[in-house]
Every structure is written in structure tokens, then in C-alpha cells.
Write a protein that binds this DNA or RNA. Structure first.
Length: 161
DNA sequence: GCCAACGTTGGC
DNA sequence: GCCAACGTTGGC
């Protein structure tokens, strides 16, 4: 039996790489590499081809969810961990036992409008969303199905902010 | 620019 | 194994 499709959220600073940047790439696809946190890595490993991913803009004004991507390729060894010239180089990682993984993400569609972090905070039903937990810094997180649907619905309504 | 929260490192 | 110091994240 096929595994249930999961939903995710990844963070990116739009000044570095925005959702529009993703849509502008050939095949609208990029390698999601450089993740150097074990819990985030474990989530990357759980991602399955076709899983949908919210693309969150952090460290910008306002922060919020900009679009939807999908997993185009499941976890593989992150090449940057072996690249001395890359800022994500990890001398302790061995090619026969890579520590870090990357996935490929393909842009699917922008949300009708940005759903701001502040707006998410105002939804009682989203209180358990990992993004909203105090001190939450994980750059890769799961999103439960009800939360996913609610956020998509919010994006189709006018902001109440 | 500030700073709280968090993960990691390394001395002991 | 403890924990202080440090670096990073990311909202404000």
C-alpha cells in the first residue's frame, strides 16, 4: 500500500532565494541542499516524491508562506558536504556514509497571496503548527493535513490583518 | 540592530 | 556526562 502523502514546510530567506526565484528556474526545480540540522535532515529523508511543501519566506517583512512546491526527487547525498569550496563543506562527513542529504524541489504554484506569519498566529486552529511554536527554528517541518487545508483556504480569502 | 531561543562544541 | 561558551536563526 502506498504511504500516505505528507505535507511539509521549508524556510528560505527571499533575499537569498525566493519562491519567484524557484519558479524562474529551468523545470522550476532546484536542489534543496545545505541543511545542517539533524532533525531537519531526518524530515528531508522522510519526504516522498510528490509530497507538497509550503515555501516560507523568513527574515523579511512580512514573513509568511509564499507558494507551494513539490518533492521532485527524494533524499540523496548533499554534494555540498564534500565540496571544500562550499560554505556547507563538512570535513567529518565521509563519502561512503554521508551525513547530510538534499532533495529536489519543483515549484508548483504561488499562493493567491502571501499568508503572513501574523495571520497564521491569529488562527486558533493552527496553534499546534510547528512554525508557530516558541523558538521554532527548524528549516524543514511537517505540516498536518488539516493545517495545510486551512492555510490554503486562508490564501484564497482576503487577509484579515 | 537587538536579543531570545536553540543547537553544537569542547573543556573538565 | 555536565554545562558554559559560542554561533545561528529569525522575529521584532
Amino acid at each position: 500500500m502506498p504511504a500516505k502523502r505528507q505535507h511539509w514546510l521549508i524556510k528560505s530567506e527571499p533575499d537569498v532565494f525566493s519562491f519567484s526565484d524557484l519558479l524562474g528556474l529551468p523545470q522550476r526545480t532546484t536542489t534543496w541542499d545545505g541543511v545542517r540540522n539533524y532533525q531537519a535532515r531526518n524530515y528531508l529523508r522522510e519526504m516522498r516524491r510528490g509530497d507538497l511543501v509550503f515555501f516560507y519566506h523568513s527574515s523579511t517583512e512580512p514573513p509568511g508562506i509564499a507558494g507551494i512546491a513539490e518533492v521532485a526527487r527524494e533524499a540523496y547525498a548533499d554534494p555540498t558536504q564534500f565540496d571544500h569550496a562550499d560554505e556547507h563543506f563538512d570535513a567529518r562527513s565521509k563519502p561512503d556514509a554521508p551525513t547530510w542529504v538534499a532533495v529536489d524541489l519543483r515549484g508548483v504554484e504561488a499562493l493567491p497571496r502571501l499568508v503572513a506569519l501574523e495571520e497564521l498566529r491569529q488562527e486558533p486552529a493552527l496553534a499546534t503548527l510547528q512554525l508557530l511554536q516558541k523558538g521554532s527554528r527548524l528549516s524543514v517541518q511537517p505540516v498536518q493535513e488539516p493545517a495545510w487545508r486551512l492555510i490554503k483556504a486562508l490564501s484564497k480569502r482576503k487577509s484579515r490583518l
